[in-house]
Design a protein around this nucleic acid. Sequence first.
DNA 1: AGGTGCGTTGCGTTGAACGCAACACTCATT
DNA 2: AATGAGTGTTGCGTTCAACGCAACGCACCT
Lengths: 258, 258
Amino acid sequence: MSQTVDRALSILPLLAEGPADLGTVAERLGVHKSTALRLLRTLHDHGFVYRQSDQRYRLGARLIALAQEAMENLDVREIAHPHLVRLNEQCGHTVHLAVYEEDEVLYIDKVESRYPVRMYSRIGKPVAITVAAVAKLLLADLPEHERRAVAEKLDYPLYTARSTPHAEAFLKELAKVGEQGWASDLGGHEESINCVAAPVRGADGRVVAAMSVSAPNVVVTADELLTLLPLVRRTADAISGEYSGRTPVQHHPAKDTR
Amino acid sequence: MSQTVDRALSILPLLAEGPADLGTVAERLGVHKSTALRLLRTLHDHGFVYRQSDQRYRLGARLIALAQEAMENLDVREIAHPHLVRLNEQCGHTVHLAVYEEDEVLYIDKVESRYPVRMYSRIGKPVAITVAAVAKLLLADLPEHERRAVAEKLDYPLYTARSTPHAEAFLKELAKVGEQGWASDLGGHEESINCVAAPVRGADGRVVAAMSVSAPNVVVTADELLTLLPLVRRTADAISGEYSGRTPVQHHPAKDTR
DNA sequence: AGGTGCGTTGCGTTGAACGCAACACTCATT
DNA sequence: AATGAGTGTTGCGTTCAACGCAACGCACCT
Protein backbone atom coordinates (compact mmCIF):
# COMPACT_ATOMS: atom_id res chain seq x y z
CA MET A 1 0.00 0.00 0.00
CA SER A 2 2.70 2.48 0.84
CA GLN A 3 5.38 2.30 -1.82
CA THR A 4 8.32 3.51 0.22
CA VAL A 5 7.65 1.29 3.19
CA ASP A 6 6.88 -1.58 0.88
CA ARG A 7 10.29 -1.26 -0.72
CA ALA A 8 12.05 -0.88 2.58
CA LEU A 9 10.44 -3.99 4.00
CA SER A 10 11.28 -5.94 0.88
CA ILE A 11 14.92 -5.39 1.68
CA LEU A 12 14.76 -7.48 4.82
CA PRO A 13 13.88 -10.88 3.37
CA LEU A 14 16.44 -10.13 0.72
CA LEU A 15 19.14 -9.63 3.33
CA ALA A 16 17.97 -12.72 5.13
CA GLU A 17 19.45 -14.72 2.27
CA GLY A 18 22.81 -13.33 3.20
CA PRO A 19 24.73 -10.06 3.32
CA ALA A 20 24.43 -7.85 0.25
CA ASP A 21 26.03 -4.62 -0.91
CA LEU A 22 24.25 -1.46 -1.96
CA GLY A 23 24.35 -2.20 -5.67
CA THR A 24 22.82 -5.62 -5.24
CA VAL A 25 20.04 -4.32 -3.04
CA ALA A 26 19.23 -1.53 -5.49
CA GLU A 27 19.17 -3.91 -8.40
CA ARG A 28 16.99 -6.51 -6.69
CA LEU A 29 14.58 -3.82 -5.61
CA GLY A 30 14.56 -2.30 -9.06
CA VAL A 31 15.36 1.18 -7.79
CA HIS A 32 18.16 3.67 -8.11
CA LYS A 33 21.17 3.25 -5.85
CA SER A 34 20.46 6.51 -4.08
CA THR A 35 16.97 5.33 -3.24
CA ALA A 36 18.22 2.03 -1.89
CA LEU A 37 20.78 3.92 0.15
CA ARG A 38 18.14 6.09 1.73
CA LEU A 39 16.03 3.08 2.62
CA LEU A 40 18.97 1.15 4.02
CA ARG A 41 19.95 4.14 6.10
CA THR A 42 16.57 4.36 7.71
CA LEU A 43 16.57 0.65 8.36
CA HIS A 44 20.02 1.04 9.83
CA ASP A 45 18.98 3.89 12.10
CA HIS A 46 16.37 1.62 13.55
CA GLY A 47 18.84 -1.22 13.99
CA PHE A 48 17.04 -3.54 11.61
CA VAL A 49 20.02 -3.63 9.37
CA TYR A 50 23.67 -3.79 10.29
CA ARG A 51 26.58 -2.67 8.25
CA GLN A 52 29.42 -5.08 8.62
CA SER A 53 33.05 -4.17 8.25
CA ASP A 54 33.19 -4.92 4.53
CA GLN A 55 30.43 -2.33 4.04
CA ARG A 56 27.86 -4.92 3.14
CA TYR A 57 24.53 -4.96 4.88
CA ARG A 58 22.96 -7.76 6.86
CA LEU A 59 20.03 -8.12 9.22
CA GLY A 60 20.52 -6.33 12.50
CA ALA A 61 20.22 -7.11 16.15
CA ARG A 62 17.09 -5.10 16.82
CA LEU A 63 15.25 -7.52 14.61
CA ILE A 64 16.28 -10.42 16.80
CA ALA A 65 15.38 -8.58 19.97
CA LEU A 66 11.99 -7.57 18.57
CA ALA A 67 11.17 -11.09 17.50
CA GLN A 68 12.03 -12.16 21.01
CA GLU A 69 9.54 -9.73 22.47
CA ALA A 70 6.99 -10.80 19.89
CA MET A 71 7.25 -14.34 21.14
CA GLU A 72 7.04 -13.38 24.76
CA ASN A 73 3.79 -11.64 23.97
CA LEU A 74 2.25 -14.87 22.81
CA ASP A 75 0.52 -15.96 25.94
CA VAL A 76 -0.23 -19.45 24.71
CA ARG A 77 3.46 -20.03 24.73
CA GLU A 78 3.84 -18.80 28.27
CA ILE A 79 1.06 -21.03 29.50
CA ALA A 80 2.01 -24.04 27.47
CA HIS A 81 5.69 -24.16 28.28
CA PRO A 82 5.59 -25.97 31.63
CA HIS A 83 3.22 -28.52 30.13
CA LEU A 84 5.60 -29.16 27.26
CA VAL A 85 8.43 -29.68 29.69
CA ARG A 86 6.39 -32.10 31.73
CA LEU A 87 5.37 -34.03 28.65
CA ASN A 88 9.01 -34.23 27.64
CA GLU A 89 9.90 -35.57 31.05
CA GLN A 90 7.26 -38.23 30.68
CA CYS A 91 8.08 -39.46 27.20
CA GLY A 92 11.59 -38.16 26.53
CA HIS A 93 10.92 -37.10 22.95
CA THR A 94 11.05 -33.73 21.23
CA VAL A 95 7.97 -31.63 21.95
CA HIS A 96 6.87 -28.74 19.73
CA LEU A 97 4.31 -25.97 20.01
CA ALA A 98 3.16 -24.24 16.83
CA VAL A 99 0.74 -21.55 15.74
CA TYR A 100 -0.80 -20.61 12.43
CA GLU A 101 -0.60 -17.10 11.12
CA GLU A 102 -1.44 -15.91 7.64
CA ASP A 103 -0.50 -18.86 5.47
CA GLU A 104 2.36 -19.91 7.68
CA VAL A 105 2.72 -22.32 10.56
CA LEU A 106 5.63 -21.82 12.84
CA TYR A 107 7.14 -23.36 15.88
CA ILE A 108 7.00 -21.06 18.83
CA ASP A 109 8.39 -23.40 21.42
CA LYS A 110 10.36 -26.59 21.59
CA VAL A 111 11.65 -28.94 24.23
CA GLU A 112 14.55 -31.01 23.02
CA SER A 113 14.50 -34.80 23.03
CA ARG A 114 16.41 -36.53 25.79
CA TYR A 115 17.55 -39.19 23.36
CA PRO A 116 20.86 -38.68 21.60
CA VAL A 117 19.29 -38.74 18.12
CA ARG A 118 17.59 -35.41 17.64
CA MET A 119 15.56 -33.93 14.87
CA TYR A 120 16.37 -30.67 13.21
CA SER A 121 13.99 -27.81 13.80
CA ARG A 122 14.19 -24.39 15.33
CA ILE A 123 11.86 -22.08 17.12
CA GLY A 124 10.72 -19.48 14.61
CA LYS A 125 11.27 -21.68 11.65
CA PRO A 126 8.28 -22.04 9.36
CA VAL A 127 6.96 -25.58 9.40
CA ALA A 128 6.58 -27.84 6.37
CA ILE A 129 2.96 -26.87 6.21
CA THR A 130 1.64 -29.59 3.93
CA VAL A 131 2.88 -32.50 5.97
CA ALA A 132 3.50 -31.53 9.60
CA ALA A 133 0.98 -32.90 12.05
CA VAL A 134 0.66 -29.58 13.84
CA ALA A 135 0.02 -27.77 10.56
CA LYS A 136 -2.79 -30.16 9.69
CA LEU A 137 -4.52 -29.44 12.98
CA LEU A 138 -4.19 -25.70 12.64
CA LEU A 139 -5.38 -25.60 9.05
CA ALA A 140 -8.17 -28.08 9.67
CA ASP A 141 -9.75 -25.58 12.00
CA LEU A 142 -9.91 -22.73 9.49
CA PRO A 143 -13.31 -21.80 8.06
CA GLU A 144 -14.12 -23.93 5.02
CA HIS A 145 -13.48 -21.30 2.33
CA GLU A 146 -10.26 -20.02 3.84
CA ARG A 147 -8.94 -23.54 4.28
CA ARG A 148 -9.63 -24.28 0.64
CA ALA A 149 -8.03 -21.01 -0.46
CA VAL A 150 -4.88 -21.72 1.52
CA ALA A 151 -4.69 -25.34 0.39
CA GLU A 152 -4.83 -24.30 -3.23
CA LYS A 153 -2.25 -21.59 -2.79
CA LEU A 154 0.34 -23.92 -1.28
CA ASP A 155 3.17 -25.79 -2.88
CA TYR A 156 3.31 -29.51 -2.26
CA PRO A 157 6.96 -30.48 -2.20
CA LEU A 158 7.54 -34.24 -2.18
CA TYR A 159 9.91 -34.52 0.73
CA THR A 160 9.32 -38.25 0.82
CA ALA A 161 7.07 -40.81 -0.87
CA ARG A 162 4.53 -40.24 1.89
CA SER A 163 4.36 -36.45 1.57
CA THR A 164 0.98 -34.94 0.77
CA PRO A 165 1.03 -34.75 -3.03
CA HIS A 166 -1.57 -32.08 -3.85
CA ALA A 167 -4.35 -29.83 -2.56
CA GLU A 168 -6.97 -32.51 -3.13
CA ALA A 169 -5.26 -35.01 -0.83
CA PHE A 170 -4.43 -32.31 1.67
CA LEU A 171 -8.02 -31.17 2.05
CA LYS A 172 -9.13 -34.75 2.50
CA GLU A 173 -6.50 -35.23 5.20
CA LEU A 174 -7.56 -31.98 6.87
CA ALA A 175 -11.16 -33.15 6.96
CA LYS A 176 -10.09 -36.40 8.61
CA VAL A 177 -7.89 -34.59 11.10
CA GLY A 178 -10.61 -32.11 11.96
CA GLU A 179 -12.97 -35.00 12.50
CA GLN A 180 -10.77 -37.08 14.79
CA GLY A 181 -9.26 -34.20 16.74
CA TRP A 182 -5.64 -35.22 16.41
CA ALA A 183 -3.09 -35.63 13.66
CA SER A 184 0.00 -37.57 12.79
CA ASP A 185 2.82 -37.33 10.32
CA LEU A 186 4.39 -40.67 9.60
CA GLY A 187 7.50 -40.04 7.56
CA GLY A 188 5.90 -37.36 5.43
CA HIS A 189 8.63 -34.83 6.02
CA GLU A 190 11.67 -36.90 6.75
CA GLU A 191 11.57 -40.57 5.96
CA SER A 192 12.46 -41.74 9.43
CA ILE A 193 10.62 -39.25 11.62
CA ASN A 194 7.12 -39.60 12.98
CA CYS A 195 4.93 -37.19 14.92
CA VAL A 196 1.64 -37.19 16.77
CA ALA A 197 -0.08 -33.93 17.51
CA ALA A 198 -3.06 -32.53 19.36
CA PRO A 199 -4.79 -29.14 19.27
CA VAL A 200 -4.88 -26.44 21.94
CA ARG A 201 -8.24 -24.68 21.93
CA GLY A 202 -9.37 -21.31 23.20
CA ALA A 203 -12.53 -20.63 25.17
CA ASP A 204 -14.57 -20.49 21.98
CA GLY A 205 -13.32 -23.89 20.84
CA ARG A 206 -11.19 -22.51 18.03
CA VAL A 207 -7.74 -24.04 17.68
CA VAL A 208 -5.18 -21.48 18.80
CA ALA A 209 -2.09 -23.68 18.73
CA ALA A 210 -1.02 -27.26 18.24
CA MET A 211 1.54 -29.39 19.99
CA SER A 212 3.33 -32.48 18.84
CA VAL A 213 5.71 -35.18 19.94
CA SER A 214 8.27 -36.24 17.37
CA ALA A 215 10.68 -39.13 17.34
CA PRO A 216 12.81 -40.90 14.80
CA ASN A 217 12.16 -44.52 13.86
CA VAL A 218 15.44 -45.59 15.37
CA VAL A 219 14.15 -44.65 18.82
CA VAL A 220 10.51 -45.76 18.65
CA THR A 221 8.40 -47.19 15.87
CA ALA A 222 5.39 -45.32 14.57
CA ASP A 223 3.10 -47.69 16.42
CA GLU A 224 4.86 -47.13 19.71
CA LEU A 225 4.69 -43.39 19.16
CA LEU A 226 0.96 -43.61 18.58
CA THR A 227 0.53 -45.14 22.00
CA LEU A 228 1.53 -41.76 23.35
CA LEU A 229 -1.48 -40.15 21.73
CA PRO A 230 -3.68 -40.17 24.86
CA LEU A 231 -0.90 -38.49 26.81
CA VAL A 232 -0.39 -35.86 24.15
CA ARG A 233 -4.09 -35.16 23.99
CA ARG A 234 -4.37 -34.89 27.76
CA THR A 235 -1.50 -32.40 27.79
CA ALA A 236 -3.04 -30.36 25.00
CA ASP A 237 -6.35 -30.35 26.80
CA ALA A 238 -4.69 -29.21 30.00
CA ILE A 239 -3.14 -26.29 28.14
CA SER A 240 -6.50 -25.52 26.53
CA GLY A 241 -8.17 -25.49 29.90
CA GLU A 242 -5.66 -23.13 31.37
CA TYR A 243 -5.55 -20.91 28.30
CA SER A 244 -9.26 -20.48 28.08
CA GLY A 245 -9.46 -19.74 31.79
CA ARG A 246 -11.48 -22.81 32.71
CA THR A 247 -8.75 -24.14 34.96
CA PRO A 248 -7.88 -21.53 37.57
CA VAL A 249 -4.10 -22.07 37.17
CA GLN A 250 -2.79 -23.88 40.18
CA HIS A 251 0.89 -23.22 40.39
CA HIS A 252 2.99 -20.82 42.45
CA PRO A 253 1.22 -17.55 43.22
CA ALA A 254 4.59 -15.84 42.60
CA LYS A 255 3.81 -16.13 38.89
CA ASP A 256 3.72 -12.59 37.51
CA THR A 257 1.46 -11.44 34.69
CA ARG A 258 3.78 -9.07 32.83
CA MET B 1 16.18 9.67 6.83
CA SER B 2 13.07 8.56 5.05
CA GLN B 3 10.07 9.85 6.92
CA THR B 4 7.54 7.24 5.87
CA VAL B 5 9.77 4.28 6.52
CA ASP B 6 10.92 5.86 9.74
CA ARG B 7 7.35 6.08 10.96
CA ALA B 8 6.52 2.57 9.83
CA LEU B 9 9.50 1.11 11.64
CA SER B 10 8.69 3.03 14.77
CA ILE B 11 5.47 1.11 14.95
CA LEU B 12 7.23 -2.18 15.57
CA PRO B 13 8.92 -1.45 18.91
CA LEU B 14 5.66 0.12 19.94
CA LEU B 15 3.77 -3.07 19.22
CA ALA B 16 6.46 -5.05 20.96
CA GLU B 17 5.16 -3.59 24.21
CA GLY B 18 1.90 -5.33 23.52
CA PRO B 19 -1.01 -5.29 21.10
CA ALA B 20 -2.41 -1.88 20.23
CA ASP B 21 -5.36 -0.58 18.27
CA LEU B 22 -5.26 1.84 15.37
CA GLY B 23 -6.03 4.92 17.44
CA THR B 24 -3.27 4.21 19.90
CA VAL B 25 -0.73 3.65 17.17
CA ALA B 26 -1.71 6.86 15.39
CA GLU B 27 -1.49 8.83 18.60
CA ARG B 28 1.86 7.44 19.66
CA LEU B 29 3.26 8.13 16.21
CA GLY B 30 1.79 11.59 16.16
CA VAL B 31 0.06 11.08 12.83
CA HIS B 32 -3.45 10.95 11.51
CA LYS B 33 -5.35 7.70 11.84
CA SER B 34 -5.50 7.25 8.09
CA THR B 35 -1.75 7.52 7.88
CA ALA B 36 -1.23 4.97 10.62
CA LEU B 37 -3.69 2.70 8.88
CA ARG B 38 -1.77 2.85 5.64
CA LEU B 39 1.49 2.08 7.39
CA LEU B 40 0.01 -0.78 9.35
CA ARG B 41 -1.45 -2.20 6.20
CA THR B 42 1.89 -2.31 4.47
CA LEU B 43 3.48 -3.85 7.51
CA HIS B 44 0.67 -6.35 7.53
CA ASP B 45 1.10 -7.22 3.87
CA HIS B 46 4.67 -8.14 4.64
CA GLY B 47 3.67 -10.19 7.65
CA PHE B 48 5.51 -8.01 10.12
CA VAL B 49 2.32 -7.18 11.86
CA TYR B 50 -0.61 -9.40 12.61
CA ARG B 51 -4.16 -8.43 13.17
CA GLN B 52 -5.67 -10.45 15.93
CA SER B 53 -9.33 -11.28 16.26
CA ASP B 54 -10.12 -8.24 18.39
CA GLN B 55 -8.83 -6.05 15.55
CA ARG B 56 -5.77 -4.96 17.47
CA TYR B 57 -2.36 -5.24 15.95
CA ARG B 58 0.60 -7.15 17.25
CA LEU B 59 3.95 -8.23 15.88
CA GLY B 60 3.73 -10.85 13.18
CA ALA B 61 5.23 -14.18 12.41
CA ARG B 62 7.41 -13.08 9.53
CA LEU B 63 9.39 -11.07 12.04
CA ILE B 64 10.14 -14.16 14.07
CA ALA B 65 11.08 -16.15 11.00
CA LEU B 66 13.34 -13.37 9.75
CA ALA B 67 15.11 -13.05 13.05
CA GLN B 68 15.66 -16.76 12.91
CA GLU B 69 17.37 -16.47 9.57
CA ALA B 70 19.35 -13.50 10.81
CA MET B 71 20.76 -15.65 13.58
CA GLU B 72 21.54 -18.54 11.31
CA ASN B 73 23.59 -16.16 9.20
CA LEU B 74 25.84 -15.46 12.15
CA ASP B 75 28.56 -17.96 11.53
CA VAL B 76 30.22 -17.52 14.93
CA ARG B 77 27.14 -19.02 16.41
CA GLU B 78 27.23 -22.02 14.13
CA ILE B 79 30.86 -22.68 14.93
CA ALA B 80 30.60 -22.00 18.63
CA HIS B 81 27.55 -24.09 19.40
CA PRO B 82 29.15 -27.53 19.76
CA HIS B 83 31.84 -26.00 21.96
CA LEU B 84 29.21 -24.44 24.20
CA VAL B 85 27.49 -27.79 24.52
CA ARG B 86 30.73 -29.52 25.41
CA LEU B 87 31.55 -26.88 27.98
CA ASN B 88 28.13 -27.33 29.48
CA GLU B 89 28.69 -31.06 29.67
CA GLN B 90 31.94 -30.47 31.49
CA CYS B 91 30.76 -27.97 34.07
CA GLY B 92 26.97 -28.30 34.08
CA HIS B 93 26.27 -24.58 34.27
CA THR B 94 24.49 -22.21 31.93
CA VAL B 95 26.67 -21.19 28.99
CA HIS B 96 26.02 -18.05 26.92
CA LEU B 97 27.35 -16.66 23.67
CA ALA B 98 26.92 -12.95 22.98
CA VAL B 99 27.82 -10.39 20.34
CA TYR B 100 28.00 -6.61 20.29
CA GLU B 101 26.19 -4.59 17.71
CA GLU B 102 25.58 -0.86 17.70
CA ASP B 103 25.29 -0.04 21.38
CA GLU B 104 23.72 -3.34 22.26
CA VAL B 105 25.01 -6.66 23.46
CA LEU B 106 22.81 -9.63 22.94
CA TYR B 107 22.81 -13.30 23.60
CA ILE B 108 22.85 -15.30 20.40
CA ASP B 109 23.13 -18.72 21.94
CA LYS B 110 22.57 -20.43 25.23
CA VAL B 111 22.95 -23.87 26.71
CA GLU B 112 20.82 -24.37 29.75
CA SER B 113 22.26 -25.35 33.13
CA ARG B 114 21.88 -28.93 34.17
CA TYR B 115 21.22 -27.89 37.75
CA PRO B 116 17.64 -27.36 38.80
CA VAL B 117 18.19 -23.70 39.69
CA ARG B 118 18.34 -21.79 36.43
CA MET B 119 18.89 -18.18 35.61
CA TYR B 120 16.54 -16.17 33.50
CA SER B 121 17.81 -15.09 30.12
CA ARG B 122 16.77 -15.64 26.55
CA ILE B 123 18.44 -15.80 23.23
CA GLY B 124 17.87 -12.47 21.51
CA LYS B 125 17.44 -10.60 24.73
CA PRO B 126 19.65 -7.54 25.10
CA VAL B 127 22.13 -8.02 27.92
CA ALA B 128 22.54 -5.77 30.96
CA ILE B 129 25.37 -4.05 29.19
CA THR B 130 26.96 -2.24 32.10
CA VAL B 131 27.46 -5.28 34.27
CA ALA B 132 27.46 -8.49 32.24
CA ALA B 133 30.86 -10.14 31.91
CA VAL B 134 30.38 -10.75 28.20
CA ALA B 135 29.44 -7.12 27.61
CA LYS B 136 32.62 -5.96 29.31
CA LEU B 137 34.73 -8.07 27.01
CA LEU B 138 32.97 -6.92 23.89
CA LEU B 139 33.09 -3.25 24.81
CA ALA B 140 36.65 -3.43 26.06
CA ASP B 141 37.73 -4.27 22.55
CA LEU B 142 36.16 -1.25 20.88
CA PRO B 143 38.49 1.51 19.69
CA GLU B 144 39.23 3.96 22.50
CA HIS B 145 37.01 6.82 21.32
CA GLU B 146 34.05 4.66 20.47
CA ARG B 147 34.27 2.86 23.78
CA ARG B 148 34.23 6.16 25.61
CA ALA B 149 31.33 7.41 23.50
CA VAL B 150 29.28 4.33 24.25
CA ALA B 151 30.16 4.32 27.93
CA GLU B 152 28.96 7.87 28.30
CA LYS B 153 25.75 7.26 26.40
CA LEU B 154 24.70 4.36 28.60
CA ASP B 155 22.45 4.27 31.62
CA TYR B 156 23.86 2.71 34.76
CA PRO B 157 20.97 1.06 36.54
CA LEU B 158 21.84 -0.14 40.02
CA TYR B 159 20.58 -3.68 39.85
CA THR B 160 22.51 -4.52 43.00
CA ALA B 161 25.03 -2.88 45.29
CA ARG B 162 27.80 -4.23 43.11
CA SER B 163 26.47 -2.91 39.80
CA THR B 164 28.73 -0.58 37.85
CA PRO B 165 27.64 2.85 39.10
CA HIS B 166 28.77 5.21 36.32
CA ALA B 167 30.77 5.67 33.12
CA GLU B 168 33.94 6.41 35.03
CA ALA B 169 33.93 3.10 36.86
CA PHE B 170 32.82 1.25 33.76
CA LEU B 171 35.71 2.52 31.65
CA LYS B 172 38.13 1.58 34.37
CA GLU B 173 36.66 -1.90 34.51
CA LEU B 174 36.83 -2.18 30.73
CA ALA B 175 40.51 -1.26 30.78
CA LYS B 176 41.16 -3.96 33.35
CA VAL B 177 39.16 -6.51 31.42
CA GLY B 178 40.89 -5.66 28.15
CA GLU B 179 44.20 -6.05 29.93
CA GLN B 180 43.58 -9.43 31.51
CA GLY B 181 41.69 -10.98 28.64
CA TRP B 182 38.74 -12.26 30.62
CA ALA B 183 35.92 -10.82 32.67
CA SER B 184 33.64 -11.65 35.54
CA ASP B 185 30.40 -10.41 36.96
CA LEU B 186 30.04 -11.21 40.63
CA GLY B 187 26.50 -10.35 41.61
CA GLY B 188 26.41 -7.16 39.59
CA HIS B 189 23.19 -8.00 37.83
CA GLU B 190 21.44 -10.31 40.22
CA GLU B 191 22.64 -10.53 43.76
CA SER B 192 23.17 -14.28 43.76
CA ILE B 193 24.45 -14.91 40.26
CA ASN B 194 28.08 -14.94 39.15
CA CYS B 195 29.63 -15.25 35.70
CA VAL B 196 33.03 -15.71 34.17
CA ALA B 197 33.56 -14.90 30.53
CA ALA B 198 36.21 -15.13 27.83
CA PRO B 199 36.48 -13.54 24.38
CA VAL B 200 36.24 -15.18 20.97
CA ARG B 201 38.59 -13.50 18.51
CA GLY B 202 38.66 -13.37 14.73
CA ALA B 203 41.76 -13.82 12.58
CA ASP B 204 42.71 -10.17 13.09
CA GLY B 205 42.57 -10.47 16.87
CA ARG B 206 39.42 -8.38 17.22
CA VAL B 207 36.83 -9.70 19.63
CA VAL B 208 33.87 -10.97 17.61
CA ALA B 209 31.90 -12.60 20.39
CA ALA B 210 32.16 -13.48 24.06
CA MET B 211 31.08 -16.52 25.99
CA SER B 212 30.32 -16.96 29.64
CA VAL B 213 29.47 -19.50 32.28
CA SER B 214 26.91 -18.39 34.84
CA ALA B 215 25.82 -19.99 38.04
CA PRO B 216 23.90 -18.97 41.14
CA ASN B 217 25.58 -18.84 44.54
CA VAL B 218 23.42 -21.64 45.78
CA VAL B 219 25.12 -24.01 43.36
CA VAL B 220 28.72 -22.83 43.46
CA THR B 221 30.44 -19.95 45.19
CA ALA B 222 32.12 -17.23 43.21
CA ASP B 223 35.51 -18.69 44.06
CA GLU B 224 34.57 -22.10 42.78
CA LEU B 225 33.20 -20.58 39.61
CA LEU B 226 36.46 -18.77 39.04
CA THR B 227 38.30 -22.08 39.05
CA LEU B 228 36.48 -22.77 35.80
CA LEU B 229 38.20 -19.81 34.18
CA PRO B 230 40.95 -21.83 32.46
CA LEU B 231 38.37 -24.15 30.98
CA VAL B 232 36.25 -21.25 29.75
CA ARG B 233 39.28 -19.60 28.20
CA ARG B 234 40.36 -22.79 26.51
CA THR B 235 36.90 -23.21 25.04
CA ALA B 236 36.81 -19.61 23.82
CA ASP B 237 40.23 -20.05 22.28
CA ALA B 238 39.14 -23.21 20.54
CA ILE B 239 36.20 -21.33 19.02
CA SER B 240 38.51 -18.48 18.04
CA GLY B 241 40.86 -20.88 16.33
CA GLU B 242 38.11 -22.49 14.36
CA TYR B 243 36.40 -19.21 13.52
CA SER B 244 39.53 -17.58 12.23
CA GLY B 245 40.33 -20.65 10.18
CA ARG B 246 43.47 -21.61 12.06
CA THR B 247 42.05 -24.95 13.18
CA PRO B 248 40.88 -27.03 10.20
CA VAL B 249 37.65 -28.16 11.93
CA GLN B 250 37.77 -31.80 12.86
CA HIS B 251 34.31 -33.14 13.53
CA HIS B 252 32.03 -35.65 11.80
CA PRO B 253 31.88 -35.21 8.05
CA ALA B 254 28.16 -35.95 8.34
CA LYS B 255 27.69 -32.50 9.85
CA ASP B 256 25.54 -30.53 7.41
CA THR B 257 26.14 -26.88 6.69
CA ARG B 258 22.62 -25.53 6.45
C1' DA C 1 48.00 8.83 -14.86
C1' DG C 2 44.20 6.62 -16.26
C1' DG C 3 40.54 3.50 -15.30
C1' DT C 4 37.02 0.84 -12.86
C1' DG C 5 33.77 -0.06 -9.26
C1' DC C 6 32.13 1.20 -5.36
C1' DG C 7 29.28 4.50 -2.06
C1' DT C 8 27.76 9.28 -1.49
C1' DT C 9 25.74 14.06 -2.26
C1' DG C 10 22.71 17.92 -4.06
C1' DC C 11 19.05 19.06 -6.64
C1' DG C 12 14.83 19.81 -9.53
C1' DT C 13 10.68 17.28 -10.60
C1' DT C 14 6.77 14.72 -9.71
C1' DG C 15 3.93 11.55 -7.70
C1' DA C 16 3.13 9.35 -3.49
C1' DA C 17 2.05 10.06 1.24
C1' DC C 18 -0.36 13.20 3.89
C1' DG C 19 -4.46 15.11 6.76
C1' DC C 20 -9.06 16.07 6.36
C1' DA C 21 -13.70 15.15 6.51
C1' DA C 22 -17.29 12.08 5.50
C1' DC C 23 -18.72 7.51 6.03
C1' DA C 24 -19.71 2.68 7.91
C1' DC C 25 -20.03 -0.18 11.54
C1' DT C 26 -20.60 -2.04 16.30
C1' DC C 27 -22.00 -1.52 20.88
C1' DA C 28 -24.17 0.74 24.78
C1' DT C 29 -27.57 3.65 26.52
C1' DT C 30 -32.13 5.62 26.76
C1' DA D 1 -35.97 2.34 17.82
C1' DA D 2 -33.35 6.10 18.17
C1' DT D 3 -29.16 8.31 19.78
C1' DG D 4 -24.53 8.65 20.55
C1' DA D 5 -19.82 7.40 21.35
C1' DG D 6 -16.32 4.70 19.97
C1' DT D 7 -14.21 2.26 16.46
C1' DG D 8 -11.95 1.44 11.55
C1' DT D 9 -12.34 2.81 6.61
C1' DT D 10 -12.59 5.51 2.08
C1' DG D 11 -11.91 9.32 -1.41
C1' DC D 12 -9.82 13.34 -2.43
C1' DG D 13 -7.13 17.68 -3.16
C1' DT D 14 -2.77 19.57 -1.58
C1' DT D 15 1.90 19.55 -0.69
C1' DC D 16 6.00 17.91 0.69
C1' DA D 17 8.95 14.08 0.72
C1' DA D 18 10.82 10.45 -1.96
C1' DC D 19 12.48 9.82 -6.40
C1' DG D 20 16.13 9.34 -10.26
C1' DC D 21 19.72 11.73 -12.24
C1' DA D 22 24.22 13.11 -12.76
C1' DA D 23 28.27 14.63 -10.64
C1' DC D 24 31.46 13.64 -7.19
C1' DG D 25 34.74 11.29 -3.89
C1' DC D 26 37.37 7.56 -2.88
C1' DA D 27 39.97 3.23 -2.95
C1' DC D 28 42.03 -0.01 -5.46
C1' DC D 29 44.18 -1.82 -9.83
C1' DT D 30 47.46 -1.81 -13.76
